[in-house]
Design a protein around this nucleic acid. Structure first.
Lengths: 206, 206
DNA sequence: CTGTGTGAAGGCTTTCACAGCC
DNA sequence: GGCTGTGAAAGCCTTCACACAG
């Protein structure tokens, strides 16, 4: 159960397995083979089994895995059982869409507040998420011990916003701005770069 | 210049280098060392140089790279110079936000049409992109020889929509639905799974 | 006989070390 | 001296082959 030894890519796949397991559970299925689960997740069965060995043994030979038990174990490892509160910074087009995106809640994350330099309540529509002025960002992070943020500010402001957030104790950032953020190495950044993804696709068109 | 031999990860980084180069060019800088460019892109300089060797030699020893020339060469490889037309399928929260997102255009992609099962013009605001009914999707792809699509439909409909698109000749899909799509292997899918990204981050919070 | 768990092999990517050129 | 280009080494991840349990 040594967290530090789980490869980065395995951690990504654990999230995917987790979602497949939830769907199985919703359908009342309580046992699944590595082969079936792997297929649902789009990987090879050996890969799935190897991934699981990094933090334990969960299967019954000749039978498969108990869906609820495996799901619980993965949730434990991923830490999603902690129900991290998340803030969103930059309520533009993309930011306000993400506020409405229901996929986060379904996976156990709650966006507890949104920030913008010019907070415009109309952008929220009927959402009940507090929309605060950017000058309250630092204070809010400190006061509520927020560790995770979704960053959807314009590229040219991203780094300075991040500097402030890190200073206030931010530990993990999901960054949608197309810039390479510089952060201390105890802070994790995951980049989602939509233009890069598209450009990458265009390469593979024959 | 053997395209097939360029590693997948290198292709991703080429897009990032490309953006850094464009910024340099905008600032009137016309020569850059691998060290400086690598730093801007968030990688090691040896990695950058190795990446470039997969499709040629572009630097001058002792001096560095010509910004315009390198940018041109990378654009050539990525195929972005072809200015691929792209369609967007599923004009919900995320879809309509992506239509407004200016980052695509800046990188040379134009969203030429959007599709939805219940097209609602209000979702477009003042955008001038044609919004069509989903039943015209297949015909449109065939008629305009569209090869790239952004998929932002609800998870439960994703696979069936994809089946139709592939049938009509779609070659590359940027998929935001949290499902593993099954496609023939001549079709490329890049997944952007926001919930997985968040969950992944939560793992790295100590 | 089915299906998991895992050491070993294989393959891919990154990093190193240094030769070569300006 | 400064910086690129690149074979070789190292590191990481995936796949294989098979032992082992139900």
């Amino acid at each position: 159960m040594q967290r530090n030894e789980i490869p980065r890519k395995t951690v990504y796949r654990l999230s995917i397995y987790q979602r497949c397991l939830q769907r199985l559970r919703d359908n009342g299925i309580d046992t699944v083979s590595s082969d079936a689960l792997a297929k649902a997740a789009g990987v090879k069965s050996t890969q799935l089994r190897k991934d699981l060995t990094y933090f334990g043994q969960f299967g019954t030979r000749g039978l498969g895995y108990n869906v609820a038990a495996l799901s619980g174990a993965i949730g434990e490892v991923l830490g999603s059982s902690r129900l991290q509160p998340v803030i969103l910074v930059g309520v533009g087009n993309l930011g306000s869409a993400l506020l409405r995106y229901s996929g986060f809640q379904k996976e156990g994350f709650e966006i507890v507040a949104a920030f913008d330099v010019k907070p415009d309540p109309r952008r929220l529509g009927d959402l009940k998420i507090p929309l605060l002025d950017a000058n309250r960002l630092i204070g809010y992070i400190r006061q509520h011990h927020i560790k995770m943020a979704i960053l959807t500010v314009p590229a040219q402001h991203a780094q300075e916003v991040v500097n402030g957030m890190v200073e206030a104790g931010m530990q993990a950032i999901l960054n949608f701005s197309p810039v390479v953020l510089e952060v201390p190495k105890n802070v994790v950044v995951n980049n989602v770069d939509l233009a890069v993804e598209l450009e990458n696709l265009s390469y593979f068109i024959r």
